[in-house]
């Protein structure tokens, strides 16, 4: 048996060094002062100053609405696709495309949107719209803004939702609807009494994942706007590579712990919801 434990060594060592070390730096740094003493001062700073409250608020709101919109549209799209058979072309295209966007999104997506919705004469679509009389930028729209980031997020939240909710939709056995109908229920009654209650936990779970996803995301922001946008990840970067104030590392770490906390809470809720769902759908 000793050999087996030894076999775990590579993995363990690797994780300790390359995950444990940075993590330690962050957590240790967040809870200590410059004089290397345990303190909560860093946290009181980030929770009291509006300089750090605003990014947190923005991040939470952004995550919430992009998750909500993505969840609803994604479920709708997934429901439409699930009805087609597995090997069909539509199915393959949608699942591959969803994978591309949900995964590879980030920078490539950002540039795609800049190319399409950038400020005229840069953006192809906005220029065309301006030519036919609809000047979006004059109305205040800007793809390189917080709102633009939100639009970009919806672009990958929807496919992500499709990926996450499809297994649950497929888990809706046709026998349930047929049984319900044989017992006299209309399609609406079936939906109300069976389909919706069964789908609610997976839907909520996926919604939480979408929220966490948006909250922790940063790549798209970098490509689309840069460090100037008021979101938590940007605040962290500013603190680390900061031009304004040097030695803001501890603030960055405290913000990092704040992010870990938010995501952890989301994951806890997710786990709770999953437990309920798994019980039913044995």
């Amino acid at each position: 048996m000793g050999g087996a434990w030894l076999g775990m060594a590579p993995f363990t060592v690797y994780v300790l060094i390359f995950l444990g070390l940075p993590l330690y730096e962050v957590i240790h740094g967040a809870f200590t002062s410059d004089a290397d003493q345990l303190t909560l001062h860093n946290f009181s700073t980030i929770f009291s100053s509006s300089e750090y409250w605003i990014p947190l608020k923005n991040s939470l709101i952004l995550s919430a609405w992009t998750a909500g919109l993505g969840a609803v549209l994604g479920t709708w799209l997934a429901a439409a696709v699930v009805a087609t058979p597995h090997g069909s072309m539509l199915r393959r295209v949608v699942s591959s495309a969803s994978g591309v966007l949900a995964y590879f999104g980030g920078v490539a997506l950002a540039f795609m949107l800049i190319a399409a919705y950038g400020r005229p004469p840069g953006g192809v679509l906005t220029t065309w719209l301006k030519d036919i009389g609809i000047d979006l930028y004059a109305q205040g729209f800007n793809i390189s803004s917080l709102f633009g980031v939100g639009i970009a997020y919806v672009f990958f939240q929807v496919p992500l939702m499709v990926i996450l909710i499809t297994p649950a939709l497929e888990g809706l056995r046709p026998q349930w609807q047929e049984a319900a109908e044989s017992l006299g229920a209309s399609k609406l009654e079936y939906a109300r009494h069976v389909a919706v209650p069964v789908m609610t936990p997976p839907f909520l779970g996926a919604l939480l994942v979408l929220f966490g996803n948006a909250f922790a995301a940063y790549a798209t922001v970098l490509a689309l706007v840069g460090v100037t946008v008021p979101l938590v990840p940007a605040a962290i970067e500013a603190a680390i590579n900061g031009n304004v104030l040097v030695n803001q590392d501890r603030i960055a770490f405290a913000l990092g712990v704040e992010m870990i906390l938010v995501v952890s809470i989301v994951m806890v809720f997710y786990w709770m919801v999953q437990r309920r769902a798994r019980r039913w759908l044995q």
Binding site: S95, L160, I163, T166, L208, V209, N213, V266
Partner: peptide
Amino acid sequence: SAVGGGPGPGLLAGAALIEEIEEA
């Protein structure tokens, strides 16, 4: 998380994606 999305998706989406691809 590093690319477009954040934490959750990596794990769950990836596995779901693999299953979806296999099922296809």
